[in-house]
């Protein structure tokens, strides 16, 4: 009796799970194809001439050419865009990490009554999306005379990254036992020494998370730099790629090559650091 009942449950479970599994594969498969096919289609077509693309949009390139990439690289001035994107990304990332971990330590381990207010103001900033402020920022930067400078771009990127950076660092450093800090205090160490000797070495995980979040957002950022910079010498990759939308809308080959050049670095970054990126995104998606 008992075995029969067990067998029935297992059989039903098996049938149900086989069906469920088939459905699961169908759903996941469909969405995976929908996700990857447009990117594959784009890459494939970047190797076709515009003329071939117009008659053969869906097939593999019959006569693959690198001409599009050469033309796009030259027309888009990617030789200037890449160094700029690196400067902005590295500068903003280093700035956000340094300032966040420093302030996070102060908020977490140096008891002051103002912490509640200042730290609170940063946390509120997480939901205050900076894109809504692009016009006043543009006017502010113009008044200060730093329109069209790298400084303005870096300041804005660092300022925009600080709320989440400080929130994550403070919460992380709060988890470090206060006893460590206190015993060093009793031994006569100053807070700066404690920061350097104790906190900094322990802050690598949160610094990694911040680096991942900041690199992804800075490298792809468009709305803000679009109003901060108009000189080609200062443009980042997304700004440069946008040039391919209007003036060249019929020259598909060149446009596709530019888009492939634009997405390749982040795809490589993603392939290399997928686990860290996934973890960072989950940690960074917090509310204020």
């Amino acid at each position: 009796m008992k075995t029969e009942a067990n067998g029935r449950i297992r059989a039903r479970g098996l049938l149900g799970s086989a069906l469920a599994k088939a459905a699961a594969y169908l759903v996941m498969g469909t969405f995976t194809v929908m996700t990857l096919y447009p990117l594959f289609w784009l890459t494939m077509n970047s190797f076709k001439t515009t003329r071939e693309f117009q008659v053969n949009m869906l097939g593999l390139p019959m006569d693959p050419t690198l001409e599009n990439f050469k033309m796009a690289w030259k027309f888009g001035e990617f030789g200037k865009l890449f160094p700029n994107s690196f400067i902005y990304t590295i500068g903003a990332t280093a700035g956000v990490i340094a300032l966040s971990v420093l302030a996070g330590f102060a908020f977490a381990k140096i008891p002051r009554r103002v912490t509640k207010w200042i730290y609170g103001s940063f946390v509120v900033g997480i939901l205050l999306t900076i894109n809504t402020l692009m016009i006043p920022l543009f006017i502010e930067v113009t008044i200060l005379g730093i329109y069209n400078t790298r400084l303005a771009v870096l300041l804005v990127y660092v300022g925009a990254g600080l709320p989440i950076g400080i929130y994550l660092s403070t919460e992380y450093i709060r988890g470090i036992p206060t006893a460590l800090v206190e015993s060093a205090r009793i031994d006569g160490a100053g807070y700066l020494t404690i920061f350097r000797r104790i906190i900094l070495p322990m802050a690598t995980p949160v610094a990694t998370t911040l680096a991942i979040l900041q690199i992804c957002s800075t490298w792809n950022e468009f709305a803000l730099i679009n109003i901060l910079v108009s000189k080609t010498e200062l443009k980042s990759l997304p700004l440069g790629i946008f040039k391919f939308s209007s003036s060249l809308s019929t020259d598909y080959g060149k446009q596709f090559a530019a888009l492939v050049i634009g997405m390749a670095p982040m795809l490589l970054f993603y392939v290399a650091f997928r686990k860290q990126i996934t973890r960072g995104v989950a940690a960074g998606a917090v509310k204020g």
Binding site: A103, A106, R112, S121, I130, L133, E140, V158, G159, L162
Partner: peptide, 27 residues
């Protein structure tokens, strides 16, 4: 402790004020 505290938070706080708070007032 107070000096260390302000040294550590002021750079971040000033940039934050300039980039987030001031534009709100300006707008």
């Amino acid at each position: 402790a107070g000096r260390a505290y302000w040294m550590m938070i002021l750079p971040a706080f000033l940039i934050y004020l300039a980039v987030m708070a001031f534009p709100i007032v300006l707008s």
